[in-house]
Design a protein around this nucleic acid. Structure first.
Lengths: 137, 137
DNA sequence: ATCAGTGCAAATGCTTTGCATCGGT
DNA sequence: ACCGATGCAAAGCATTTGCACTGAT
């Protein structure tokens, strides 16, 4: 995503465009494996030593609340951030603790079909996601 | 589950059978919505004021390591405990933060079939679980 | 009697909060 | 200039750890 596009994305909804937000957004977008707040901080602090960890947390939170990024919890209870907004599944590696995307249209269609046919009584389904645990070969 | 059965379950694998372990196991089994360590402690402390929160944490951890119970992380990053060991999905309620079981054989068969047919390259799948987010009607 | 289990308090790790200062609009 | 964004440090919460004491075998 270009700098202009990121700027527009941040500005939508009345957020101020700042250097910190630019850098933090790029860090999430560049990371291939959904980073923690700490990882984002590690990644940016060498070239931007003045950005504080607190700002990273606040900024990530702001982005999530404005629908700019998503967050979820890993199996250790730590928050992970993701610039991809549409539905996809995650592969959790027991060895390395990495979390990678898994996209499969057939699987998504299968699940969508199932929950359209089978209502859960007394419960309104918003989203369904899959957690695949295992390890890299 | 009877007291004798719980006693056997705990004794298997060389664990000592203690009053604390009995009480903590029963608290998990009785709870309909996967409790946190804190909730287990809340539930037992009136009738067992001498059991400390630290012991609840250690005991739950021991149970998990011996395959007596399971644990998972909720969407706030807090550990939840579950006396049911076989595969099942969870319903997360956005309103109440409750987590309920959802069991559906067709869904489990569907997923099992999918992952038997579709290998994920470079990744060995151990278990697949579904997270259903929504709210009670 | 032995050694695992327990209680308590201190420590840890991740995240949030308060508040004074800074900077984008 | 205004008001939101930032930096820093302190506080908060869930969980873990260390260690002396207790109790099941």
């Amino acid at each position: 995503m270009s700098i202009e596009e990121i700027k527009n994305k941040i500005s939508e909804g009345g957020l101020k465009f700042t250097h910190q937000r630019m850098v933090i957004y790029k860090a999430i977008e560049d990371a291939e494996n959904h980073p923690t707040a700490e990882k984002v901080y590690e990644h940016i602090k060498d070239s931007n030593p003045s950005i504080s960890l607190g700002t990273v947390y606040k900024t990530l939170d702001t982005f999530v609340n404005h629908g700019i990024i998503q967050k979820f919890v890993d199996n250790k209870g730590v928050m992970r951030f993701d610039s991809i907004l549409d539905t996809h599944s995650h592969l959790y590696c027991k060895k390395t603790n990495e979390i990678k995307d898994y996209r499969n249209e057939e699987l998504e269609a299968l699940l969508k079909g199932f929950f359209e046919k089978n209502e859960i009584q007394g419960f309104e389904v918003d989203e369904v996601s899959i957690v695949i645990r295992g390890q890299h070969k």
